[in-house]
Design a binder for these strands. Structure first.
Lengths: 206, 206
DNA sequence: CGTATCTTGTGAACGATTTCACAAGCAGGG
DNA sequence: CCCTGCTTGTGAAATCGTTCACAAGATACG
């Protein structure tokens, strides 16, 4: 199987969302040009991206919204629920947790952990915040597949090491540090400061 | 002036952080190899990135931590404070606001707006949440340069249109939609669902 | 002062990604 | 049933980004 670039995967995710909108708007069919326009890319790019996985369209007609929706869902692995744990129930963690949209998109947050004894035992959504010490065992017992790390920078590497040891295969990191994970574990970072600095650079170089 | 890729800017931002750590640890000097190792890249990459802006190192020695710190700050436009507005004071907006680290890094949140009358008038940090109707005028009057958009997806395009019209030149968007901005305005997106889907893809294709 | 060691800065090679361009498939109308 | 208009899928070309490899500057030391 050929290698798929991260940017291609990002765009697939985007197409998925655009297709859901088109579907909600009642469209039966959609062309690469329409997807491109709504997604801010080009029709050739759309076709190339899709061609990495097969050929789903009809010449002269475009793509069936329904079918493409299902295909992309399958490609992205979104036809099942993923078991997710949230680590860190601070401001950001809580905000993420309350964003119930994840659930609808296949990511079920099944456990929340925090180190702060003040927070342990409090309710968050339908769950109870659990103690840090329970984490390692719980991640294993509940076969958590994805960890969202929303702890302070100093704690993040330690947390991710434990999480990996507990068998979690993918990590979404919000701490502003570069984490090391063993090969085979997938890591993505969300770093707001870094994004702001990107904006600063753009404004500055005019 | 040659074009600088977004990835190069991201890495500069990263180097800046690594340099701050090195500085805090008392290092006087640092080599491209050391930066590379800590940043998860290669020494050639580090040197190439820096060479886009000049030559700051001493052969045989490496870079002066202090000097490189200042140089990168200058490149990224971080030697001044930026005037930032936060639009949307929901869970996510509040979480972002309370993350005071931005301030220290040169991004001063000077105004918060929300459409919800319940929220308007309430205190958030040192600021008062202001009404949506005041926004356009306030952005201009206070010469806001960067807007952080943390409103629901449906509202985001409308908000960003107004923000752009009010003279804001850079937008950090948290809404899960593809926004259109005129050329000359810089847009960055933070889209957590998209990141999670990237993880799903990786887990799914094993 | 000469030699050994280190590390930068940078063309050139390489690899990856995006864009181009066009043959081929499909639908609709006359 | 053929012609027109539209759109896909995909090699080939172009562009962009990364890695290689090495000359040259800098220091340390005998």
């Amino acid at each position: 199987m050929k290698k798929i670039s991260e940017s291609a995967v990002r765009r697939l995710s985007l197409y998925l969302r655009l297709l859901q909108e088109a579907d909600a708007a009642g469209a039966e069919t959609i062309s690469s040009g329409q997807l491109a326009e709504r997604g801010g890319t080009t029709s050739a790019q759309v076709r190339k991206d899709l061609s990495l996985f097969g050929s789903f369209g009809k010449r002269g007609l475009g793509y069936s919204v329904q079918e493409l929706l299902e295909r992309i869902r399958a490609i992205l692995g979104l036809q099942r629920q993923w078991r997710v744990a949230l680590i860190g129930a601070g401001k950001l963690g809580s905000a993420l947790f309350s964003y119930r949209d994840f659930e609808a998109r296949g990511f079920e947050i099944r456990a929340v952990f925090d180190r702060d004894p003040e927070k342990v035992g409090t309710a968050l959504g339908g769950l109870t915040v659990r103690a840090d010490e329970e984490m390692d065992r719980a991640l294993r017992d509940e076969a958590i597949e994805i960890a969202i790390v929303a702890v302070p920078g100093e704690a993040a590497q330690h947390v991710v090491d434990r999480v990996v040891k507990a068998g979690v295969g993918a990590v979404l990191n919000f701490a502003p540090v570069r984490l090391k994970v063993p090969r085979g574990v997938t890591l993505r970072n969300v770093d707001v400061t870094l994004e702001l600095e990107g904006l600063s650079f753009a404004l500055n170089s005019r």
